[in-house]
Write a protein that binds this DNA or RNA. Structure first.
Lengths: 199, 199, 199, 199
DNA sequence: GATGAATGAGTATTCATTCAT
DNA sequence: CATGAATGAATACTCATTCAT
């Protein structure tokens, strides 16, 4: 990697970190692009050589942070455990992390569903990717005899994801309290897997 | 009802209708409270004798319109039909109606989840009410032998509602197209009811 | 005039004076609407209850100030004097005044010709009005035997106005110096009236 | 001419053509220097090896295009025709051409009068040159007995030019419509030459 | 009850120009 | 000769809400 490329990569890292930090402490709307640029040590215009909009930057932060979070979550799973347990292992890791940065999480769940057309595919692709990993998880569970082989895993993964997503929205909209999040999710999953899962 | 009360009720009707009309054509943010007041034939300040905020007004429109919509939807259900069919009867009625006013529907699903604290209980109560009616539907299905009596209907109703809600969000965020909404919802429900429903 | 109306008129006066003062000292672009509002002792939003845009405000200042200026200029004219002398009386009064506020004058001649469509008719009307007064002047001169009765006064007035306008543009664009403005104008007029004027 | 010089001349040609094309289609302000550089097939910084500013580039385009236009216009003139006819031959050629590129013409008449000090002499010199050619035309007309020999041709040429310039400004500011431009110009000239011209 | 004049906070983004390479 | 990444200044206007009348 040449000097210029390394400089660029380094700058990009500083930008994403600065944005993440400020979004988390001040919120999305309250954070100005000027503040991000200053925190990252670059000019205000320079920011726009890396992203096309503030929303684009949010998406970058999300991908960076939440992508890594989920990647790690999947490594914690024991594929021989009962399916609900596998799911809860991953989701409880993710929710535990999110609880540490409630403001940023709130932004993710509030802003990213209704994003401008230009960003939409970025968000969709991200979600599809992780739903795909749940499909893999469920397929593996079938092989291990933990799941009814007739179940359409694609649709089931979507259903499980929807339970998670709605609960997170309600949690970070302030409609349900932190303590009841995981128990509710567990019950949701149990009902969603009713009669499908063994063990 | 006295004359003054009738006048007030008439004004309130005009306000809700004006707001509904303008939100539907211009969108929520683009509609000014001044425009609503003018359309309703009242002064700008007078509006605040009826609602506490613009958001409050949106909630009123939502309750008025969507409440009636769901009330009607439940009357269409045949309680002896298979559960998925019962569900689809109600939901397809609702989605068909929403498709006629996409902008207004978009606002509902975008704005109402993350509403300010003062309005939150109003929204929650509304949703709880209709989820409760699904619980009744499922309980009745148990009685009719259409649903496994061991299933926890409260949680199941929440799960079904989540499928619906997420799909509607994705539909009105522009992520999925109109045609695939109902088929997706049907498949979701079938998987959610897997091994529970008979007939 | 009621209290509210007097208040409104008073506020309007303060706005125009504040804008005039700031445009003259800082220039048009460098003057912010916030500064004008503060100088006028009103809120920034209040300004827009009186004008539709910053450009609109400039036009108001122009009309207010330059209208009065020309009105006064016409009172100075001796209708029995030779035509060139009559013209020079009026124009030298106007140019003398403009020389006291060169920045503001510069703005008038730079901005007002290429104004946005919404304001255009306002500017045109203003100019037509004063060109019309020159037509009257020339018609009176015919009656007094100071001008060839066959001359089309409408077109002649336009021509004289064009000489004035171009010279003012060049003066305030910095292309010609202050001292040569009036002599050039005088010569222009003499040539423009060549063979038409007597006395 | 050496190879390097030819390369440079070729690049310059490409730059002026690119700028002309983009100014004409997008307008002056909306055209970015980056877009011009790309259209010309050079780097953004390279542009500044040829011009000192965007304004400078506009002036170059103007000189290139309008200079040629006027040069051609003068060749069309029949010096034995009546003066007004001679003038109208030239001006109608020029205005006809301008009507084909209204946006670019608008820019010329809007921007070039109030140009930055560094460019001012360039514009003035250009105008002086062509006003000078009108002086020649008028002097020749005197010799041919078409114009009163006592008329100061320098000042008359300025006056005629002013009529033209003001009308073009008003035309491209949107204040007068295309059809009335030439008739108005003709009448202006007739009044401006009142009693001076014969034939 | 009704009015409507007044308020004032609040910021993403562009782009001509430069200069280190 | 040529490049293109980096810069950073700069602001009109809207509109939900209030409260004196």
């Amino acid at each position: 990697m040449g000097l210029r490329e390394r400089n660029k990569a380094e700058k990009w890292r500083r930008i994403v970190e600065a944005a993440s930090r400020l979004f988390a402490t001040r919120g999305f709307e309250a954070t100005t692009t000027a503040a991000i640029a200053e925190e990252a040590g670059i000019g205000t215009g320079t920011l726009y050589l890396y992203v096309t909009s503030k929303e684009d930057l949010l998406l970058a932060v999300f991908r960076d942070e939440v992508g890594e979070l989920w990647d790690h979550a999947f490594t914690l799973i024991d594929p021989t455990a009962p399916v609900v347990e596998q799911l809860m292992t991953a989701f409880s890791h993710v929710t535990a992390y999110h609880e540490q940065e409630p403001e940023l999480t709130r932004i993710y769940f509030k802003e990213l569903m209704f994003v401008s057309p230009a960003m939409r595919s970025g968000v969709s692709e991200f979600m599809r990717h992780f739903i795909g990993r749940f499909v893999e998880l469920l397929d593996k569970a079938k092989v291990n005899g933990l799941l009814d082989p007739d179940v359409p895993t694609g649709m089931l993964a979507h259903n499980l994801w929807a339970q998670y997503y709605i609960l997170m929205q309600r949690r970070y909209a302030g409609s349900i309290d932190p303590e009841s999040l995981l128990p509710r999710l567990g019950h949701s999953f149990q009902v969603a897997l009713w009669g499908m899962a063994r063990g």
